[in-house]
Design a protein around this nucleic acid. Structure first.
Length: 956
DNA sequence: TCGTTCACG
DNA sequence: GACGTACGTGAACGAG
């Protein structure tokens, strides 16, 4: 063996992320998640075993990221700003990485202000300069810049041979040398930095050049030789998108080049000679492995099969820094509102006695406008218990009233609190007083919590709904659709709120809010009320200024208590019927599975599109082609149906298997689990801000997608039943979106057909094709829907199974027969481009910030959505208006006991005594049919179809 | 977490 | 120059 030294540099931080996603979520005997640590440990093990082997390590060190900020943030403050926080069950594993490294008696290097990549680069350079070889254990593309022979040393007699750098991906067990890098990037390693600078990196938030991806970046560097040359050549390129982008993005690319460059001259925290890898002392390793229950590795140590050992001293000073606090999130630096002091959590009061509570109630009455927030033991308003209430009456004037704190530890003393009953009795007049406005963030939740204590919270305002009515579509999608309090606070107040998880923890270690110490609970809860109060002051004036008053006051705000009531009602489901279905589906699934495996000739996971694709197209040789950027075969319904038509018996079996598996997991199993034990009914939760168009959405469980289109699926609908003596009544708007399109786009022939109660698709077929038969009617129906969704010739062609030319001809014909439709589309798009938003007949706005995007896909997607939004949104407005008026109208007719249970976009479901069906139907039909009036007078009638029965299915 | 698939309007 | 192509949702699952 030669004397050549070989330094292994392990990129520990990057490794653990990959290990986390690759390995199952193991926990150690104490319940701490250790899956990623296990992966890391086995990797070190493997590397240690390589000692003494040819090309194995003589020296080894683990390099870790110290903190999230580095010198790159000084150059570009948004560097890594897009990084999502690490998963919660990974966080506790970070310190364990150091424990594991120490258990192997290996050095662990980390340095403030430097990323692991920079430390690795600096060691690699220093080592190659001495003629050592270096292997970087990582698969990070940034590090690929370092791969290769260190040319500068090659001819230097002092360092015979020069040092080589390669990389090792231990997960794929793959060496990455210059050729592999060239394969991946199309350029040699020393030019990888130029390519990276052009393409950017969304995860690290390296800007790169917009619209330039890996392919284009590679091509540019190949052609011009370097980033600088490519940028210099831009002015002489022929006119193209790319040229514009290069000219526009020059600065960003140059900045990116600096960001992706690795720092190769950082001071080395420890001489690399100290990284010498020796036999590993067994005891620390044994201790570590047994603590975490890694028994198979433990056995191998004890059997003496693994013991390289001790390098130099560890770095004991670093151990103390393990528990470094997470870096605080970047403070939003927007101005606070004028005349409002900054949020000061120390000003909040914890109310623990009656006298103080009475004082706050008196002040709240005087304030006339207060924010209210309830804290509960869990997230589900129907199942959770009240833990406390906070009130805010002005900026920093907020209190928290604990009502259910302590109690889980029976030996600990409960904190002093006003007894729940007493507090509720004192607060009720305030919370129900017409003279005091109660503002909440998602106040529907608080309404439902308080309703269980016989408090009818009113009158109300909701900052979440306000934000939605002003800004729907403006922000990125996310939890709360961009209307969550933390986001709103950041955006409008420039204030970073305390996060629930910082107070209660997350995952297994999470504690209920009632176990949070009162000082901390007060800071958190009172801040929520304070921030809500401030947001209201900020958002409410915008309503009038931005013409949002109409939709908020006339449609959305009145709906809040109505939807809250529907959620509290819930709907009964027949548990036994669902259990029988689950059983039946299980058996049929098992049978199909057997058949499918038999036909395939092997066992595989049918639910894995990847495996299924491999079986169908690789093994069995059916034609079907690749699809999607993942390079995976598509196996969706349309493809399988094509295969079935090609006489592939396996396809039908898979289709049936899919259907049954879906129905079982999503419906028959899940719905049984969703039955509330207190009420014995299923209570969905509606989101008022869930869909950008103004529709509601339904979650936990979603009751807006219960099957209806197939017989087997309808079995599930049969399990939705009334209480004994009652029936379910379903009232549907018939063809409401087409009716609205006919009105809004002014299409006389369609309006006339609706007026006369004709079959609208038949009428369309008549207009388009001159004849009506099954085929032309079906085509006309498809086209009608295509219009509502923003048509494209390719989309229509795909649906109709014709060529794009033919589809285009039909579209042309449609526009010719119904010129109003084309005018509507043009007008709508012009308006959206000009103003940035679309509007419904009732003034609901939906913003389309990407309508002017340079990205064709993005832009056209926005255009289609913008064509659809006014129609879908107007439909949502209309049924919302009907819902808000429904119970008062029924009550006036002496039918106050009729219960409105569900909304499914164009349908309302009620439960009522059979004897009231006739009277109630009259009221329901009238309220729904007249819902647009008096604000809007439609040119088409709104037809309502009503059915009743002993189940939701029977009601259709 | 992401992509795929599929349930609904 | 290729790609993916109808609008709006939510849930489950496999894979990395």
């Amino acid at each position: 063996m030669s004397d050549k030294q070989h330094l292994y540099l392990v990129d520990g931080s990057a490794y653990i992320f990959r290990a986390y996603h690759r390995l199952p979520p193991l926990t150690n005997p104490e319940g701490t998640p250790v899956g990623a640590v296990y992966g890391y440990t086995t990797m070190l093990w493997k590397l240690a075993e390589e000692l003494h082997k040819a090309n194995g390590p003589t020296h080894l060190a683990v390099i870790l990221d110290k903190a999230s900020k580095s010198f790159r943030n000084d150059i570009y403050e948004d560097y890594k700003a897009n990084r999502p926080p690490p998963p919660e069950d990974l966080v506790p594993q970070f310190p364990l990485i150091r424990d594991a490294t120490r258990a192997f008696s290996l050095p662990c290097i980390e340095e403030e202000g430097l990323e692991a990549d920079d430390i690795i680069a600096s060691y690699a350079r220093a080592a190659t300069r001495k003629g050592w070889d270096v292997t970087i254990v990582s698969s990070d593309k940034d590090l690929m810049q370092l791969v290769g022979t260190c040319a500068e040393n090659k001819d230097d007699p002092e360092f015979p041979g020069g040092g080589c750098v390669d990389m090792l991906d231990t997960m794929k067990n793959q060496r990455i040398g210059p050729e592999e890098v060239a394969d991946k990037f199309g350029v040699p390693p020393e030019k990888v930095g130029d390519v990276l600078a052009l393409m950017g990196d969304s995860v690290d938030n390296i800007p790169g050049i917009f619209g330039v991806g890996p392919k284009t970046a590679t091509k540019l560097i190949q052609e011009h030789g370097s980033l600088a040359a490519a940028l210099d050549a831009a002015p002489d390129m022929k006119k193209s998108k790319l040229k514009e982008r290069l000219l526009e993005g020059r600065e960003m690319a140059e900045l990116s080049r600096i960001l992706v460059a690795l720092k190769e001259d950082a001071p080395l925290p420890m001489p690399m000679e100290d990284f010498r890898l020796n036999e590993i002392p067994p005891q620390p390793l044994i201790d570590f492995l047994s603590t975490h229950g890694f028994s198979s590795l433990l056995k191998r140590v004890e059997a003496g099969t693994g013991s390289p050992a001790r390098p130099t001293e560890l770095n004991p000073a670093k151990a103390d820094r393990d528990k470094e606090a997470a870096p605080s999130s970047p403070e939003g630096n927007r101005q606070p509102l004028p005349d409002m002091p900054a949020v000061d959590r120390s000003a909040y009061i914890c109310v623990q006695d009656e006298a103080t509570l009475e004082d706050w109630i008196a002040r709240a009455f005087a304030a006339r406008e207060i924010a209210v927030d309830t804290e509960t033991s869990a997230l589900d308003a129907m199942g959770a218990d009240l833990t406390g209430i906070s009130l805010a009456i002005g900026p920093n004037e907020a209190c928290y009233i604990p009502l259910g704190h302590g109690g889980s530890d029976m030996f600990a003393e409960k904190p002093a609190q006003v007894p729940l009953e007493r507090a509720v009795a004192l607060l009720k007049p305030l919370l129900e007083s017409d003279a005091v406005l109660k503002v909440g963030q998602n106040i529907k939740y608080d309404i439902n919590v308080l309703a269980r204590h016989d408090i009818a919270l009113a009158p109300i305002e909701d900052t979440m709904v306000l934000s939605f009515d002003l800004d729907a579509g403006r922000s990125e999608q996310g939890i709360g659709g961009g209307h969550g309090m933390d986001e709103l606070s950041e955006r409008h107040l420039g204030h970073t709120t305390m996060k629930f998880k910082d107070v209660c923890g997350t995952g297994k270690k999470a504690i209920p809010f009632g176990e949070v110490p009162l000082d901390k609970a007060t800071e958190y809860a009172a801040e929520d009320a304070d921030v809500t109060w401030r947001l209201y002051q900020h958002l409410r004036p915008r309503l009038a200024a931005e013409s949002g008053t109409r939709i908020y006051e006339r449609v959305d705000r009145p709906l809040i208590p109505v939807v809250a009531g529907m959620e509290r009602e819930g709907i009964r489901v027949d548990r036994d019927a669902l259990a029988r279905l689950s059983q039946e589906f299980s058996e049929r699934i098992a049978g199909l599975e057997k058949d499918i495996h038999e036909i395939a000739g092997e066992e595989f996971t049918i639910g894995s599109p990847k495996q299924l694709g491999a079986i169908l197209f690789d093994k069995m040789g059916y034609k079907g082609g690749r699809k999607g950027k993942s390079g995976q075969y598509s196996t969706d319904q349309a493809i399988l149906e094509k295969l079935a038509a090609q006489d592939a018996p396996i396809a039908n079996k898979v289709l049936e298997w899919r259907q049954l598996a879906k129905l079982k997991s999503t419906y028959t199993d899940a719905l049984q689990a969703a039955i509330n034990p207190r009420t014995n009914r299923v209570h969905t939760s509606y989101s008022l801000v869930g869909a950008q168009t103004g529709r509601l959405s339904s979650t936990d469980p979603n009751l807006q997608n219960i099957p209806i289109r197939t017989d087997i699926g309808r079995q599930i609908r049969k399990a939705f039943v009334p209480e004994k003596g009652n029936v379910l009544l379903a009232a549907d708007y018939s063809q409401i979106e087409l009716r609205l399109a006919a009105h809004m786009a002014d299409v006389p022939p369609l309006k006339e057909a609706f007026d006369k109660g004709e079959d609208i698709h038949a009428r369309t077929a008549e207009e388009l094709f001159g004849t009506v038969d099954r085929d032309t009617r079906a085509r006309a129906k498809t086209i009608n829907f295509a219009i509502l969704y923003g048509i494209s010739r390719w989309g229509l062609a795909g649906r109709l199974g014709v060529e794009a030319d033919e589809a285009q001809a039909m579209i042309d014909r449609y526009f010719e027969r119904f010129p109003g439709i084309q005018r509507y589309i043009v007008r709508t798009l012009e308006e959206v481009r000009e103003k940035g938003f679309s509007e419904t007949l009732f003034g609901r706005k939906t913003w389309f910030p990407r309508i002017g995007s340079k990205n064709q896909n993005e832009r056209q997607g926005s255009e289609r959505a913008a064509i659809n939004a006014p129609i879908q949104g107007t439909c949502a407005d209309i049924i919302k208006r009907a819902m808000a008026r429904m119970m008062p109208a029924l009550t006036e007719a002496g039918l106050g006991h009729v219960r409105m249970l569900l909304q499914v976009h164009d349908e309302l479901v009620f439960e009522l005594p059979e004897s009231d069906v006739k009277a109630a139907s009259t009221v329901i039909e009238r309220i729904m049919g007249e819902a647009a009036l008096p604000a809007v007078s439609l040119d088409v009638p709104l037809a309502v179809e009503i059915g009743t029965g002993a189940s939701w299915d029977d009601a259709h």
